[in-house]
Measured scan of single mutants.
Amino acid sequence: TKIIYHMDEEETPYLVKLPVAPERVTLADFKNVLSNRPVHAYKFFFKSMDQDFGVVKEEIFDDNAKLPCFNGRVVSWL
């Protein structure tokens, strides 16, 4: 699974690849690859589809939650 993530106000996003199927990747999986960053200091928002509003940034805080996936990749903002 490819996860593209944006940090603070930085213009260029980062990319990490996880050896987990897109439909199975969790917030804990993502946090594990960010071990060099203080993950407890961040809120995690993900590109998600809402039936009422369309594409939104959804906050996910449960480490066991599966991450929303679009075209085989996850897009996140920290």
Rank of each mutant, 00 (worst) to 15 (best):
F70A: 08
A28H: 07
T12N: 09
P19N: 10
Y42S: 02
D52I: 13
E59Q: 09
N64D: 08
E58Y: 14
C69L: 12
I3L: 09
E59T: 00
N36Q: 11
V39W: 07
F53K: 15
W77M: 00
T26P: 01
K43C: 05
V55Y: 10
E58K: 15
D29H: 11
N36R: 10
Y5A: 01
V74R: 04
L78F: 09
D8M: 06
K47D: 10
K47N: 14
S35K: 13
L78M: 07
H40A: 10
P13H: 05
N64E: 13
E11S: 09
F53W: 11
L18C: 13
D63M: 04
E10Y: 05
A21V: 05
G54K: 15
F46E: 01
F44I: 02
K66I: 11
K17D: 14
L67F: 00
A21M: 06
Y42V: 06
K57Q: 15
V55P: 09
A65K: 05
K2E: 10
P19M: 06
I60Y: 04
P22Q: 04
F46R: 05
E10L: 09
V16Q: 03
R73G: 09
V33S: 14
I4R: 04
N71G: 11
V56R: 15
E23T: 08
K2I: 15
P13K: 09
N36V: 11
G54V: 12
K57R: 14
V16K: 04
S35Q: 14
L34N: 03
H6W: 13
G72M: 01
M7F: 09
I60R: 03
T1R: 04
F45K: 02
P68I: 04
L27E: 00
P38I: 13
N71F: 04
V20C: 08
P19A: 10
M7I: 09
Q51T: 12
V33F: 07
V56N: 14
I60D: 00
V25R: 02
V55E: 14
N32L: 08
T1A: 01
S76W: 01
F46N: 01
F30W: 00
Y14M: 15
Y42L: 09
L78R: 00
D62G: 02
K2A: 07
V25M: 01
R73Q: 15
F44Y: 08
I4L: 07
F53H: 12
F46K: 01
F53P: 09
I4F: 06
V55S: 12
W77E: 04
N71D: 08
K66Y: 09
F30I: 03
K66W: 03
F61E: 11
P68M: 07
K43H: 09
V39A: 08
T12K: 15
K43L: 04
F61R: 13
K43R: 13
N32I: 08
F70N: 05
Y14G: 03
S48V: 14
K57F: 15
V33Q: 08
M7N: 02
V75T: 10
T12H: 14
S48H: 11
S48Q: 12
A21S: 11
A41K: 09
G72C: 02
T26S: 05
Y42G: 02
A41G: 10
C69H: 08
D63W: 05
V39K: 06
V75K: 05
L15R: 12
L18S: 05
E23K: 00
F45T: 05
A28L: 10
G72I: 01
E23M: 07
D52R: 15
K2P: 07
E11Q: 11
Y14V: 12
D29L: 05
H40T: 12
S35F: 12
V25K: 02
L67R: 03
K2S: 10
G72Y: 02
K66E: 06
I60L: 08
R37E: 11
V74P: 03
L67T: 01
S76T: 04
K17A: 12
V55Q: 10
V33N: 02
L67G: 03
P68K: 01
I3F: 02
L18N: 00
R37M: 08
M49R: 13
T1L: 05
D52S: 13
L34I: 14
L27D: 00
L78W: 07
Y14N: 15
S76H: 05
I60C: 07
H6A: 02
M49K: 14
V74M: 00
F30M: 06
K66C: 09
F53I: 10
F53V: 12
K47Y: 06
P68L: 03
A28D: 04
M49L: 10
K2Y: 10
F53Y: 08
K2M: 10
A21H: 09
Y14K: 14
G72K: 02
E59G: 03
A28E: 05
S48M: 15
V33R: 08
A21I: 06
A65V: 07
K17G: 07
D29M: 07
H6T: 08
D50R: 15
K2R: 10
L27S: 03
R37Q: 07
N32R: 13
L67V: 03
L15A: 12
K66M: 10
D50T: 13
V20I: 14
R73E: 15
F44R: 04
E58I: 14
V33P: 04
E23C: 07
E10K: 07
Y14T: 11
E9S: 11
M49S: 15
A28V: 05
I60N: 00
M7V: 13
D50G: 14
F30L: 13
V39T: 10
I4K: 06
N36K: 10
E59I: 01
V39D: 07
V25Y: 05
V33G: 13
I3K: 02
R37A: 06
N71E: 14
D63R: 03
I3S: 01
P13T: 15
S35W: 10
T26R: 08
I4H: 05
V33A: 14
C69I: 14
D62W: 03
F46I: 04
V33D: 00
G72S: 04
D52G: 13
C69D: 05
G54Q: 15
P38R: 12
S48K: 15
E11A: 12
F53R: 15
E23V: 02
D50C: 11
E11R: 09
Y14L: 14
E58F: 12
S76Y: 07
P68D: 05
D8A: 04
G72W: 02
V25I: 12
P19C: 06
C69A: 10
P22T: 02
T1V: 08
D29R: 00
I3H: 03
V74G: 02
T26F: 00
L34S: 01
T1E: 03
G54I: 15
N36W: 08
K47P: 02
N32D: 12
V74W: 00
R73D: 07
K17M: 14
E11F: 04
L15F: 14
T12Q: 14
R37T: 14
D50L: 06
L34W: 03
E9Q: 07
Y42M: 13
P38L: 09
V74H: 05
N71T: 02
D8Y: 08
Q51M: 13
E10V: 11
T1C: 13
F53S: 15
P22F: 13
A41F: 11
H40L: 08
F61D: 10
E9N: 15
V55I: 09
K57E: 14
A28G: 12
N36P: 13
K47Q: 13
I60G: 03
Y5C: 06
K47A: 10
S35I: 10
K43Y: 04
F30E: 04
Y5V: 08
L18D: 01
I4Y: 13
P68N: 03
E9A: 10
T1K: 05
D63N: 09
L34M: 06
N32P: 00
L78S: 02
N36T: 13
L34R: 00
I4P: 00
V20K: 06
E59D: 00
H6P: 05
W77L: 01
K47T: 07
F53A: 14
N64C: 06
T1D: 02
L34A: 00
S76D: 03
S76M: 03
A21E: 11
V56L: 10
H6D: 01
E10N: 05
M7H: 03
V55K: 06
R37Y: 12
F45W: 11
E23A: 08
A65T: 11
